[in-house]
Design a protein around this nucleic acid. Structure first.
Length: 415
DNA sequence: AATAACTGCAACCGCCTACTA
DNA sequence: GTAGTAGGCGGTTGCAGTTAT
């Protein structure tokens, strides 16, 4: 099952590749390209299956591979990316030119996991290892499991990763990035000069369009939300809790190098030069565009504001803040096709050396298609409008500026 | 010196998805 | 709609080299 039939046709060779085989494959692919991998072994005179040839090429023979040990920067990036992406090795590898997923996977399993444990960090959750968790697979939480334990884990599908996936943790916490990694990744947002900005007046969807102090709400939670099935709060209550949130902090920024990997592919079409996060997990100011409420003492859950209040119109952005750890998962597009929604977001173009920021309003209707975008430059205070038809998921981005520091407008300026 | 245990890495396995007929 | 195929991916295994006993 799942085995390639071509692998059986001629009893292909297995095991390590000989230099002769390598040369045959290398010569063939560099001369003709691989085309259909299943035909490569025959054309190249090899007794391997196409799949094996492909793997050998990708992991070893490819001329653009970087050889040698991983640098500290590469290791750090892998750890950061793993915190966000988990074991998505190919996506991690995509951020490290010249490195293969297999190489990174091996490095992680043989080295980086151990290093994290030695630092007291759980390599699965990227959180500090508690006392109870620390006595797990080896002495002091460091090093590789013993052979016998490793074997038992191999034969036990409920252990390790499988257990992690089926644990009771909220399913929306697909991606996580610890604040310390965020901070480490974003040293550039600093400096003494700060620019106070005001939102241009003709931005059509400001915070006041979404919240009023009387706008208490009780929202049935999606089944993916842990805890009670409904929750009530008011925006002002929440804003009071987050009163200091209007000052920007590097903690809400992520390394631009890590961000593209966590975005769905469809999102990239929105702003071709921008990279960033879905708005719901970016900046406290962004909370203003959402119904956000407190789950418990430490956790906040964000819901994007829908123009309708019907339950099935709730547009869920699965975003949770838990003690400074931001977690987010795929948007649950439970919004009815026929219902409209609108929201606002802030965009920072990382390629804009002036550190300009744009306040963007968008309207969505039917299948979350973006109907219109009105942009207003915050720095130049020159409103611009543009319209586009993007059949895409409803994602926004806020991106990090390369070298600027900002103080965000106070709430009354927003309103 | 012998051997057991450990380590790192290359390669394989099996599942999944996209594509096509 | 379905079956077959290819490619891609993550998990697992095998093995050579190294280290510890």
């Amino acid at each position: 099952m799942g085995r390639h039939s071509s692998c059986y046709k001629q009893k292909p060779r297995k095991g390590l590749w000989s230099p002769d085989e390598d040369e045959k494959l290398y010569r063939y692919v560099t001369k003709y390209g691989h085309g259909c991998w299943s035909s490569v072994p025959k054309q190249a005179g090899l007794q391997r299956c196409g799949k094996s040839c492909r793997l050998r090429w990708i992991n070893y023979l490819r001329p653009d591979l970087k050889r040698g040990a991983f640098s500290q920067e590469e290791e750090d990036l892998i750890v950061q990316l793993h915190a966000v992406l988990g074991n998505r090795w190919s996506q991690i590898a995509a951020q490290l030119p010249g490195r293969t997923d297999n190489e990174i996977k091996n490095l992680w399993n043989s080295c980086l996991k151990k290093k994290l444990r030695q630092k007291g960090i759980d390599p699965v959750t990227h959180k500090p290892i508690s006392g109870a968790d620390n006595g797990g697979d080896d002495k002091g939480g460091c090093g590789k499991p013993t052979k016998s334990l490793e074997k038992s884990q191999r034969s036990n599908p409920n252990s390790t990763l499988t257990e992690k996936r089926s644990s009771s943790s909220p399913p929306q916490t697909c991606y996580q990035m610890k604040q310390e990694h965020v901070d480490a990744a974003m040293g550039s947002i600093s400096g003494n000069s700060t620019a106070t900005m005001t939102v241009v007046s003709n931005s059509t969807a400001l915070a006041s369009d979404y919240f009023s102090d009387h706008d208490s709400f009780s929202i049935p939670l999606p089944s993916t939300v842990p805890g009670s099935s409904t929750i009530s709060t008011t925006p002002s209550l929440w804003l009071a809790q987050m009163g200091k949130s209007l000052e920007i902090s590097s903690e809400f920024y992520l390394n631009p190098n890590t961000i593209p990997a966590i975005l769905p592919q469809s999102a990239s079409s929105l702003f071709t030069s921008s990279i960033g996060l879905r708005h719901s997990v970016t900046h406290p100011a962004e909370y203003l565009t959402m119904k956000t409420f407190q789950l418990d003492e430490n956790q906040f859950w964000g819901l994007e504001n829908s123009s309708t209040s019907s339950n099935n119109g709730t547009y869920v952005s699965s975003f949770v803040e838990n003690n400074g750890v931001f977690s987010w998962g795929p948007v649950d597009c439970s919004l009815s096709d026929k219902e409209a929604s609108s929201s606002a977001s802030l965009i920072v173009d990382p390629h804009d050396q002036m550190g300009d920021m744009k306040w963007t309003t968008t309207d969505y209707i039917q299948n979350s298609s973006l109907l219109s975008t009105a942009e207003a430059s915050l720095q130049n205070q020159t409103p611009q409008s543009s319209y586009s038809e993007i059949k895409s998921d409803a994602y926004y981005f806020i991106t990090s500026s390369s070298s600027s520091s900002f103080v965000w407008p106070q709430q009354n300026q927003l309103c």
